[in-house]
């Protein structure tokens, strides 16, 4: 970009094509604060544009400023104009480096940047030279995965950048058909599940659909699920937990049944609150454990007596010895 020259001139706003986003990657932004600032003090940094034909200009930097100018009725403004020898690739890089220098990009913006860089560079170059700039690991897999986010519906893309849907969970949604994806998202977006739980629920729904050869709609038709979702007695976290358990039971019927039977057996043992009897994770290993707390010798004696009674449980014996 050695030959980059900038000329400053006042331009009629109508000569700048606001629909031409060739060099633009801003996504998920709000104009309100900037608008307030421009209304009070005007535009301090003129937008940067590139002349594409006689008196027609394409935005390089300053997209949001120009949108506000249009909204508030500014007809003419001082602009920085790149000389027309600058190639599109370099003009795009000007905008990229300008943004990188002063703000954090969201993941959708990164995916737009990568997809636009693909117009100018090979994938290996993008992986090596640009992914680290964007704070991404330099692997082809990361490139493919990030670009693929652009295939998601706008609603879901927005949910990612506004923190409603985890990015990892969103990737899992890509496996669904558009219709099923919308349905799953609709339910999830109202439950405020943690990142891991979002991913777990999406994975379970997908696996059930594949296993049973059915659509999301047929799973979501369940009365039990709809009773949870429509319940007036449950708050949102409670609904989220019930929904998660609902899908887990559908996906892993035998494991969930065993877990529930274990809890029932533990309750029947009447061990009290200070003793915790645990099964091996997923019942895979063969090590059970007992944890307990005590604050006095009497409490210790009492706990040991209760623990001793575990060995008399027929259910426990069956669980351990088969």
């Amino acid at each position: 970009m050695k030959n980059m020259k900038i000329e400053y001139r006042r331009l009629d706003l109508r000569s700048i094509d606001l629909d031409d986003t060739t060099f633009i990657f801003s996504y998920g932004f709000s104009l309100s604060l900037l608008r307030e600032a421009i209304e009070k003090i005007g535009i301090i940094n003129p937008p940067l544009v590139k002349e594409v034909s006689d008196n027609r200009y394409r935005i390089v930097c300053g997209y949001k400023r120009l949108l506000i100018c249009r909204d508030i009725g500014i007809k003419e403004l001082s602009s920085a104009i790149l000389n027309d020898h600058i190639e599109d690739r370099d003009a795009f890089l000007v905008n990229l480096y300008d943004n990188l220098s002063h703000r954090v990009l969201n993941i959708i913006e990164k995916s737009i940047i990568i997809s636009k860089l693909q117009n100018y560079y090979t994938d290996p170059t993008i992986v090596k030279s640009f992914l680290p700039l964007l704070g991404l690991n330099p692997h082809q897999y990361v490139l493919n995965r990030t670009v693929s986010l652009l295939k998601l519906d706008e609603k879901i893309r927005d949910a990612i950048i506004f923190g409603i849907l985890d990015e990892g969970a969103a990737f899992k949604l890509m496996n669904f058909s558009k219709k099923d994806r919308a349905l799953v998202y609709e339910v999830l977006s109202n439950l405020r599940l943690s990142k891991n739980k979002q991913t777990e629920v999406i994975e379970n729904i997908y696996d059930i659909m594949k296993r049973d050869g059915c659509s999301a709609l047929s799973i979501f038709d369940s009365k039990e699920l709809n009773d949870i979702l429509d319940s007036k007695d449950l708050n949102i976290p409670q609904k989220g937990e019930r929904v998660r358990r609902f899908f887990r039971r559908l996906r892993y019927p035998n494991i969930v049944k065993a877990e529930e039977e274990f809890i029932k057996m533990r309750r029947e043992l009447k061990l009290g609150d200070s003793i915790k009897l645990n099964h091996p994770p997923f019942f895979e290993g063969d090590r059970y454990s007992v944890q307990f707390h005590f604050g006095s010798i009497d409490e210790l004696k009492d706990n040991l007596k209760k623990i001793d009674s575990i060995k008399d449980s027929k259910k426990m014996r069956k669980l351990i010895e088969g």
Binding site: D207, I208, K210, R211, R251, Y252, P253, N254, I255, A258, P281, F282, F283, E284, G285
Partner: peptide, 18 residues
């Protein structure tokens, strides 16, 4: 891959023990 698998003690996914 859609049957009931659990993480094994060696990190591999295995059918639920029973």
């Amino acid at each position: 891959v859609y049957e009931e698998f659990v993480p094994g003690l060696d990190g591999k996914m295995r059918y639920y023990k029973p």
